[in-house]
């Protein structure tokens, strides 16, 4: 279900200082960033699918999904893409970065629901947080995670200390070195989606487009988490507007029903 927007908006739109606790490569081209609030009084609780804008001073402000939260520690998973993420990867343990958030609306299953999760590539990033929440809600998650080459995989259970109950994961890779060979979207074809309370896909836009075409037209409870160019993250600059919709990704998303983003996804090259 979509969660309410946060009441207290102003403080989270400023950059709060966080100290880097860990910033290490965990898989091909993929990094884990762990930061801790420099302010002992800072209190906030992120929800699954919230994101934070990470300020790399004088270089960029990068929107990253929250991967996990443990008290004052925030965990992020990111791939190297441009100058911003490359510079972020060079930031040393002990140095400071600024963090704006939590941004966007959260998304989580209702109590005792069963959800199918389809993640492509770094689309796995918000899933550890979702698993943590599913455990609290007594919900069940069946996860399909697809990557191009199997060196992109990493062990989310081990990294985040997730217990094995409440979720399962099927690994899919195009290099055929995993549980299933091919695209994640093909891997779920054999799954009976009717046994789930809802399905959500997170990943590259082409994948989401195919996903919505296959499952979104007949099912109301079909969601996608979009990854678009968020700039200010505050609903002001307008960069992340959803085509033919009043909605903005940064304040109303990143999770939308397929039916809400049909026009947006049409623009994707499939």
């Amino acid at each position: 279900m979509l969660l309410e927007k946060d009441e207290n908006k102003i403080p989270r739109f400023s950059f709060r200082p966080f100290k880097i606790i860990e910033n290490i490569q965990i898989a091909s081209n993929t990094f884990l960033l762990v930061v801790e609030s420099a302010n002992s009084l800072d209190h906030f609780s992120a929800k699954p699918f919230n994101f934070f804008n990470i300020w790399v001073p004088r270089v960029d402000e990068i929107p990253l999904s929250i991967a996990y939260q443990n008290g004052k520690r925030l965990f992020f998973l990111y791939k190297l893409r441009g100058l911003g993420t490359k510079t972020l990867a060079q930031q040393k343990v002990g140095s400071f970065i600024g963090i704006k958030g939590p941004l966007g609306r959260g998304f989580e299953p209702k109590r005792s629901e069963k959800w199918l999760i389809v993640a492509g590539g770094i689309g796995i990033a918000p899933i550890p947080m979702l698993i943590k929440r599913a455990l609290e809600l007594d919900a069940k998650l069946d996860i399909f995670w697809g990557v191009r080459v199997s060196t992109e995989f990493f062990d989310i259970a081990k990294i985040f200390g997730l217990p094995n109950e409440a979720w399962s994961i099927v690994r899919v890779s195009e290099d055929c070195m995993a549980d299933f060979c091919g695209l994640v979207i093909d891997a779920i074809r054999s799954v009976n989606v009717d046994k789930y309370d809802g399905i959500i896909a997170i990943g590259p836009q082409e994948m989401l487009k195919t996903f919505c075409k296959q499952y979104g037209e007949s099912r109301e409870n079909t969601y996608v988490s979009l990854e678009t160019i968020v700039k200010c993250g505050m609903g002001i600059c307008g960069s992340c507007y959803i085509r033919e919709s009043e909605k903005l990704l940064c304040v109303d998303g990143p999770v939308f029903r397929c039916s809400e983003v049909a026009k947006q996804l049409e623009g994707a090259s499939a």
Partner: peptide, 17 residues
């Protein structure tokens, strides 16, 4: 436009853009 950060909230209730 400029590269982000382009807008930030300030502790005094203002915005800087």
């Amino acid at each position: 436009g400029y590269e982000p950060p382009i807008i930030v909230a300030l502790r005094n209730g203002g915005l800087l853009n």
